[in-house]
Design a protein around this nucleic acid. Sequence first.
DNA 1: GAGTAAGCGAGACGGTACGTCGTGTCTTATC
DNA 2: GATAAGACACGACGTACCGTCTCGCTTACTC
Lengths: 215, 215, 215, 215
Amino acid sequence: MAPTKAPDSSRRSDRSRRAIHDAALALVTEVGYRRTTIEGIAARAGVGKQTIYRWWPSKAAVLMDAFLDLAGRAAVEPGAASGAAGQSGEGAQGIPDSGDLVADLKLVLRATVDELNDPALEAPTRALTAEGIVDPKLGAEFVHKLLDPQLALYVGRLRAAQEAGHVRADVDPRVALELLIGPLMHRWLLRTLPLTHAYADAIVDYAVGGLAPRP
Amino acid sequence: MAPTKAPDSSRRSDRSRRAIHDAALALVTEVGYRRTTIEGIAARAGVGKQTIYRWWPSKAAVLMDAFLDLAGRAAVEPGAASGAAGQSGEGAQGIPDSGDLVADLKLVLRATVDELNDPALEAPTRALTAEGIVDPKLGAEFVHKLLDPQLALYVGRLRAAQEAGHVRADVDPRVALELLIGPLMHRWLLRTLPLTHAYADAIVDYAVGGLAPRP
Amino acid sequence: MAPTKAPDSSRRSDRSRRAIHDAALALVTEVGYRRTTIEGIAARAGVGKQTIYRWWPSKAAVLMDAFLDLAGRAAVEPGAASGAAGQSGEGAQGIPDSGDLVADLKLVLRATVDELNDPALEAPTRALTAEGIVDPKLGAEFVHKLLDPQLALYVGRLRAAQEAGHVRADVDPRVALELLIGPLMHRWLLRTLPLTHAYADAIVDYAVGGLAPRP
Amino acid sequence: MAPTKAPDSSRRSDRSRRAIHDAALALVTEVGYRRTTIEGIAARAGVGKQTIYRWWPSKAAVLMDAFLDLAGRAAVEPGAASGAAGQSGEGAQGIPDSGDLVADLKLVLRATVDELNDPALEAPTRALTAEGIVDPKLGAEFVHKLLDPQLALYVGRLRAAQEAGHVRADVDPRVALELLIGPLMHRWLLRTLPLTHAYADAIVDYAVGGLAPRP
DNA sequence: GAGTAAGCGAGACGGTACGTCGTGTCTTATC
DNA sequence: GATAAGACACGACGTACCGTCTCGCTTACTC
C-alpha cells in the first residue's frame, strides 16, 4: 500500500481536466472506444500524456470521469445538452408519483429509452458498460457512481406504491425494479431488437401486472 | 471486392484449429481478454501467427469460434465439463413442459444461473458479450449464433403456455421472455448483486404473475 | 547470461541495415549526436524502431557500425568518398617505406590531419570518440575495431626503421607511435589550436629526433 | 536581445550552490554522466529545479562549475582530498626548475598520471572532456578555464630550458608541450593501454631527446 | 517595523524520446 | 499449398526528463 507519490490535487489544472474530458468523449464518439488512445486524447486536449497518467489509471477511468462530469453538468442545466439532461434530470427530481404507478413508470422508462437511443451518449455508455463487464473494479465504480443512484429512485417509487397498496407487500422492490430495467438494458446492450417506447410500455404493463396485489 | 486469395479450407489443419481454440479459452480465463493477444495464442498453441490471421479476422472471432466449439462439444457429451453442459444441453432438449409453467421456468432459469456462475465459462462469456456491446458486427454474430437459439426455446414454451391458457393471448412471447432473461443478465453483467437461485425464482414468480390471465 | 531470444541474423534485411547506417550518419552530421535520436533514425530510414533495437543495443552502437561500414566501403573503392578513403586506404596499404622515416611519417600524418579536418567525418568521429571516453565498453570496441589496426601500421613501420638503424633499438614502438598520434588527437579533440600540415611536420621532426640513435 | 530578467546574484543562496555542486559531482561519479539528470541533481541537493535553471544553462555547465569549485577548494588546502591537490597545486606553484629538464618533467607528468588515475576525479573529468569534444562552446570553456593555465606552465618551463640551452631555440614550446601532454591524454582518454609512471618517463625521455640541441 | 520583491523548495504542466509490446503483412524453409 | 517461425513497418504503451510555469514560504532590502 505504498502511496508512491500522490500528486497534489490542489494544484491541479482545471483547464486540462476539462480539455481531457472533452477530448475523451469526442474521440470515443467519433472513432469508437477501441481506437481511442491515451495519446490521442492528450494530443486532442493539447495536453502532455503525463498529465493524464498523473490523474487517471486507465483510459476507462478517464472516460468514466468525463461521463460523470457530463452527467453532472447536464444535471445543473437540464435540457441543455440534447437528451443528456434526462438521466440526471430525473435523478435529481426522482420518479414522479401521480398515484398511477403504470403511468409514472412508463414516463420514466420512455425517457430512459430516449436516453439510450441518444447518439451523443451511446458510444461512451456502451464503452463504459462493456469495460465494466470485463473489469470488475471498474464495473463496481460504474454501478456505484452511475447506476445505484438511479436504481434507488425506483426503490423509492415502488415502496410508495406498496404503501398505497398498488404493489404487494411481499414484493422485494430491489428485485422488482430489475424486472423493469433488466429487459431494457438487455435489448439495448445486445441489440436483439429495436428499443422503442412501445417496448417500454409493454414491459411496464407485464411487470406491474406481476407485482400488483392478487385480487 | 476481389476475394484476395481465399484459403482452401479443405487443407486446413484440424490440429492447429483445436490448439488455437484451447489456447484462446485458456488465456482468456487465465489472464483476461484484454491481456490475451494473438501472439500469445499462437505461441501457446504452438502455431504460426499467420495461421490465425488466415482463418480468423480478429481476436474476438477466434474466441467466438472457440466458444461455439466448446458449447458444441459440451452438447455432445452432456454433463462432461462441469456445469458447461447446461446451456446447450437444454438447448438441444428444449425447455420441459410439465404443464406447470412456473416450475418449468424456475428449473431453466436456475440452470442458467448455474451456468453464468460457472468459473470456466465466465471469462469467455463476459469477454464476448462485452466485445459485442461495443462492436455491432460481432454483437450481431453473438446474438445470432448463441443467443437467438436460446431465446427461441422460450418463445416455444410460452406459446405452449398461451395455448394451455396459462398466459394471456395478447402477450408477445418475444417481449415476455425478456422479462425473464433481462433481469438475470442485468444482474450478472453489472454485478449489482449476487445471482442466486432465489433471485431466479423471484423473477419467475413476479414475471409469470404479470403474464397470467386476469381473473 | 541468458541469451533471451537472439534474432536470426540470416533473415536480416540488408536493405534496412543500410538505410539505418545512412540515416544515422546523415543525422549525426546534420543535427549533431545529441539531437540524433533512435526515433529520428528510424523515421529517416523508413524503418520501425524495433528493427533498430533488434540489432543494436544503443545509438552509439548503431553509429559505430555505420562508421565501420563507411570505412569498409571506402577501403574497397579508394578515393571514392571525399577524403574518406584516406584512413582505410593507408590501412590496407600500410605506411610507405621509402627509407626516409621522417618523410614517410609526414606523409601519413598529413593525411591523418586531412581526414580529421574532413567535415563529412568530423561529426561521427567526434561523437564516437566522446562516447567511448565515457563508456568503457564502447571505447574498447572503438579502439579494437578502428584504432588498433591503424596503430599496428605504425608499429610495423617503426620496427622497420629500427632494423634499418634509423631508430634506437631500445625504443618501444608502441610508445613511440603515441608521440606522433597523441599530439594530433589532443589538438583535434580539444580544439586548442588549428590542426595543420605544419603542425604534423613539426611533430614528426621533434619526435623522430628523440627516437633516432644518439650520435 | 532583451536581457529577459537577469537574476540578482547578490541574493544567491550559497548553500544551494554548494549542495548542487556536491550533488552533481556525486551523481556523475556514482551513476555516470549520461544517467545524471538535472532533476536528480535537484532532488539530491534538496533544491528546486528552477534554482538550477536560474543559474546554469545546462547540465554540463553545472558540472563544469562544480569541477572548478572542487579544483579551487583543493588548491587552497593542498594534499587534502586524496591526490586531488595535484593539478591545481602545481598549477599554483608552477613546474619546478631544478636545472634538470628531464627530471622536472618526469615529476610533473607522473603527478598528472596520478591525477588522471584518481577515481574521484576520473568520472567528472572524462564527462567534461567528452562533452567538450562534441560541444565546441563547452570545449572552448573547458580549454580556457582548465587546460590553458596548465599548458602555460609548460611553456614557461620550456622557455627557461631554451634560455639555459637545454632545448633548441627553433623549437616552438607550444608545440613541444603537446609532445608531452598529447600521448598521456591519448592513452587516458582512449584507454589503449594502462597509464603508468613508466609510460610518463618514457614519453619524457623520447620527447626531450627530440627537443635537445643537436650535438 | 511594515511592505515588497527576489530567491527558494516544490512540483504540475506541455512536450520529446525512450525502450517494449502487439498488430497485421510478408518471407523463408519445412512438410 | 498450408504450416511454424519470425523479421518487418507501424503505432501505442507507460516512464523519465526536459525546460517553463505557478504556487506559498522565507529572507532581505526599502520606505
